[in-house]
């Protein structure tokens, strides 16, 4: 429980040298206490856990669970975990933890929660913000807590956990809900945006052009800032055109 709670702040000392290395070490300090390691073991514990660790923060508890298990096994039977194995495991596991976690959380679950919240905001106002927090809170609570248990049970064999349906099926369903919410957001923005309904032809043209521009820019992996600037530029052109037509 203490490790999982500490893992909420695993990125506090994020840096280019060891990424979340110090965060991982601070999260694992309670393990040192559970094992009642003698004081002279502390320096080697710090050395084992201060190298590179670059996981996704939401599934880092999977790696922490596995590392805690390896420390536990090493303490019970030193021959079962050879010297250098924990350091090697720690370094090698961070890439798959980062890529699977980023794919699940940053690419799927975050847009899912954000779009559910945005549609909620378009329909109910401030409750949408609460909805975003609840939806994402449920997802991250589920993964942060259970990942530690899964990591503890799997030990060094956490690759099988990362490839399991536990990390795939929720992403699939969340992706479908996110897509539905994106569609709903488009429809709602057309008829009832927070800035008011689209009543003039010029507004419809501005909306359509900016919509197409954003789709094109982001599908080409351009930053969203481009979509914003293009929308402002397009709105200026449309306003000018509308003025000319009226005049």
């Amino acid at each position: 429980m203490e490790v999982v709670l500490r893992a909420f702040w695993i990125q506090a000392s994020l840096n280019y040298q060891s990424m979340q290395g110090l965060g991982r070490l601070v999260c694992l300090l309670p393990v040192m206490r559970w094992l009642s390691l003698p004081g002279k073991e502390f320096a080697s514990f710090v050395r084992r856990h201060s190298g590179l660790f670059n996981s996704n923060p939401f599934v880092a508890t999977l790696g922490l669970g596995a590392l805690a298990r390896l420390e536990f096994d090493r303490n019970a039977n030193p021959e079962s975990v050879p010297d250098g194995m924990i350091e090697r495991f720690s370094e090698r596991v961070s890439t798959p933890l980062g890529s699977v976690g980023d794919e699940l959380f940053w690419v799927t679950l975050r847009p899912h929660a954000v779009l559910v919240g945005s549609v909620g905001a378009l329909l109910t106002g401030a409750w949408g913000a609460c909805l975003l927090l609840v939806v994402f809170g449920v997802w991250q609570g589920y993964y942060r807590w259970n990942s530690f248990t899964w990591g503890w049970a799997a030990g060094a064999r956490i690759a099988a956990v990362l490839q399991s349906e536990r990390f795939r099926r929720p992403a699939k369903y969340a992706g479908w809900i996110a897509s539905g919410c994106a569609g709903a957001a488009v429809a709602l923005l057309l008829v009832n945006s927070p800035a008011g309904a689209l009543t003039a032809k010029a507004q419809v043209v501005a909306f359509g052009g900016a919509f197409a521009g954003a789709c094109a820019a982001l599908s080409q992996r351009k930053p969203a800032t481009w979509a914003l600037l293009a929308a402002v530029g397009w709105a200026i052109v449309v306003s000018f055109g509308a003025k000319m037509l009226r005049g």
Binding site: A185, V186, L189, L190, S193, A195, L198, A202, Q203, V204, A206, F207, G208, G209, A210, F211, A212, G213, A214, C215, L218, A227, L228, A230, A231, V232, W234, A235, V238
Partner: peptide, 9 residues
């Protein structure tokens, strides 16, 4: 309208 169009896109 343009800003929300960009948001929808």
């Amino acid at each position: 309208a343009g800003l929300f169009g960009a948001g929808a896109g």
